[in-house]
Design a protein around this nucleic acid. Structure first.
Length: 573
RNA sequence: GCAGCCAUAGCUCAAUUGGAUAGAGCAUCUGACUACGGAUCAGAAGGUUUGAGGUUCGACUCCUCAUGGCUGCACCA
């Protein structure tokens, strides 16, 4: 049991003895070090409910509070804050416990859920661009964290392999295809076809109709068009796989929209038969008269020309997932603009009797330097592949400059870990709902609150151990010596290490990896302060052993935490 | 028109969900380099949290109104 959980329990006990509802028991790290290590605001919250004086309630709680075995005498401050300062011995014990715990103080959830996470979802024959970054990186990180906390997670890449873009691609394939280019750079060629046809039909209604007809032929099963489609999908997958491999992202399920195609017609028929959907203006819609916000926002599931829509596919997909995985929750990691769409889909799902916890994990848009949203067809989108390459390249120049002694192979690997880490961290560190201002300069800057800063903290610790192993004579082992907390910088670092047990649960509570980023940054910061203030290798035996062990736990937490963000750590950099 | 999201230091962002003197990073300034890796640390300066009311012991946070911005709203995904 962690110190914080233990304290919460003691506060609950005190509340119960004092005749106050123990649900008010909540303990948080102290707002500032001058107040102590932990605090509870229970007295003020309870006083509010009971219409009593907060300070009197605090005093009453204090008389029933029994924490002498691991805290100094608690004090009441301000409007009714109760502050705790943990004894050095108890703090030492707690950090030692984390050090000896394979899970570093992170407890698994009480009730493991099956969570299906839908993210990334690039479109075939279109480049993966910056717009896919957030979904991909955020979804991957949430998957890792949920899994780490003991949930059963299914990652599902719902590829856009059946969209209207195929009319353009097929027309282009038949009339504009450059076979050599297709061999050498297949995705670029597919994108070129898409873009050229898209531009050509802009002012040509006749061509537009021809292109649309190619799409209809594909949908009706035309052999030639189907073959072109299959090749386009296969070529796109190769490129996706390359990028996912680079990013070290994996999927358990990778069924594209086309997989659900045959289910769409029967689904709409069934919804009509059950009276859930009805015809309106030639289209088939689901209405939500009972939901005020959706009263005038029907969900279209079949067009008047018989075609199906985004919502139809999403509903069919959900039904499939229900019977295939029986999930407790389905999370959709997509942009905030799709909020209405998901409200409609979720409301429709409820009409279908689906009670699964459905969640739209929305995130803000990626903005260009003009502060306008980056649009899919602006033609100025930064492609993901190029972006990652650029990040690695820039990391490479820094690495070769800072550490020319590394072998070429190691420089490449370090540049990859740093470059990709920088891109991922720059995205994850922000609250997911705030719009993300895309900036090469910021993303690739290795100063301040960035992945390289965190990686550097880890590398330094590894460096200390390399030096220690070289200097210490054989037989001397620090591994068996306990951590003993004394100096202020040691206290601060120890307390920060202990927070790891809480932060992951907080992240999953609101699907916010930025809380983990913030935590790791503060951990690295605490370590660097400790590193400056407390000599490790130059200290006398017992202190040296303790500090080495403290550094070791720090490294483990950094490595584990970063891995949960999908970010690696090098041994040298 | 209706709805959703948002407005915090010069810039980019936080704020443990209603708690203590609103915190970081860039940029600026002052210190610390024969260094356990300076990709660092210690410190300074920078704020009427868009504006006006309200709720209470206490508001960046909740409510109302206003202003400004982004996004969505019937046959794209």
């Amino acid at each position: 049991m962690s110190l914080q959980v233990n304290l919460r329990q003691r506060v609950a006990d005190a509340l119960r003895t004092a005749g106050i509802d123990e649900r008010f028991a909540a303990v948080a790290p102290a707002a500032a070090a001058r107040f102590g290590d932990f605090q509870t605001n229970a007295a003020m919250v309870a006083a509010k409910a009971l219409k009593k004086n907060p300070r009197e309630v605090a005093a009453s709680i204090l008389t029933h509070l029994n924490v002498e075995d691991f805290c100094e005498r608690p004090t009441v401050a301000g409007a009714g804050f109760i502050n705790f300062k943990v004894l050095d011995t108890a703090l030492s014990d707690a950090v030692n416990a984390v050090r000896n715990d394979r899970r570093l103080g992170v407890e698994s959830v009480q009730k493991a859920k099956t969570i299906l996470i839908d993210f990334s979802s690039p479109n075939v024959a279109k480049p993966m661009h910056v717009g896919h970054i957030r979904s991909t990186i955020l979804g991957d990180s949430l998957s890792r964290i949920a899994r780490h906390l003991g949930h059963r997670v299914i990652t599902d890449n719902h590829i856009g392999d059946w969209g209207t873009q195929f009319g353009k691609v097929i027309y282009g394939w038949k009339h504009l295809l450059n076979r050599v280019a297709l061999e050498q750079t297949p995705i670029d060629e597919l994108v070129r076809l898409y873009r050229e046809v898209n531009a050509m039909e802009e002012n040509d209604p006749v061509l537009k109709e021809t292109v649309r007809h190619e799409l209809v032929k594909l949908q009706q099963g035309d052999a030639e068009n189907l073959e072109i489609w299959k090749q386009a999908v296969s070529l796109s997958w190769k490129e996706f796989e390359r990028l996912y491999g680079l990013l070290e992202i994996t999927f358990d399920e990778r069924l594209g929209e086309s997989f659900y195609n045959d289910a769409l017609g029967p689904l709409v028929d069934r919804l009509l038969a059950q009276g859930i959907a009805r015809e309106s203006e030639g289209a088939v819609c689901i209405f939500f008269p009972e939901t005020p916000a959706l009263e005038e926002k029907p969900c279209l599931i079949r067009k008047s020309d018989g075609g199906f829509l985004y919502a139809t596919t999403d509903l069919a997909t959900l039904e499939y997932r229900e019977q295939r995985w029986h999930p407790d929750a389905v999370w959709y990691v997509t942009g905030a603009p799709q909020q209405l769409h998901f409200e409609q889909v979720f409301a429709s799902a409820r009409k279908l009797g689906i009670t699964t916890d459905l969640l739209h994990i929305a995130f803000g848009s990626i903005l260009g330097e003009d502060r306008k949203m980056m649009k899919t067809r602006s033609g100025e989108n930064v492609e993901l592949g190029g972006l990652l390459g650029e990040a690695i390249e820039q990391a490479m120049t820094v690495v070769t400059e800072k550490n020319p002694d590394l072998s070429a192979a190691e420089q490449h690997e370090v540049a990859r870990v740093i470059g990709l880490g920088a891109v991922k961290y720059a995205d994850l560190m922000q609250h997911r709902l705030t719009d993300y201002l895309f900036s090469w300069e910021k993303m690739l800057s290795f100063q301040g609150n960035t992945a390289p800063y965190l990686q550097n903290a880890y590398v330094r610790i590894r460096s200390i151990f390399r030096k220690a192993e070289a200097e210490l004579s054989e037989g001397i082992s620090y591994a068996s010596s306990p951590i003993s907390i004394a100096a202020p910088a040691e206290r601060a670092l120890a307390l920060q290490i202990l927070k790891f047990g809480e932060v992951l649960h907080a992240v999953l509570e609101d699907q916010r990896p930025n809380l983990l980023c913030l935590y790791l940054y503060e951990l690295a910061d605490s370590f660097h302060s400790f590193y400056e203030a407390c000599p490790i290798l130059k200290a006398e035996d017992r202190v040296r052993s303790s500090r080495l062990a403290l550094a070791e736990v720090t490294a483990e937490v950094l490595k584990t935490g970063l891995s949960l963000l999908g970010i690696g750590v090098p041994e040298r950099m």
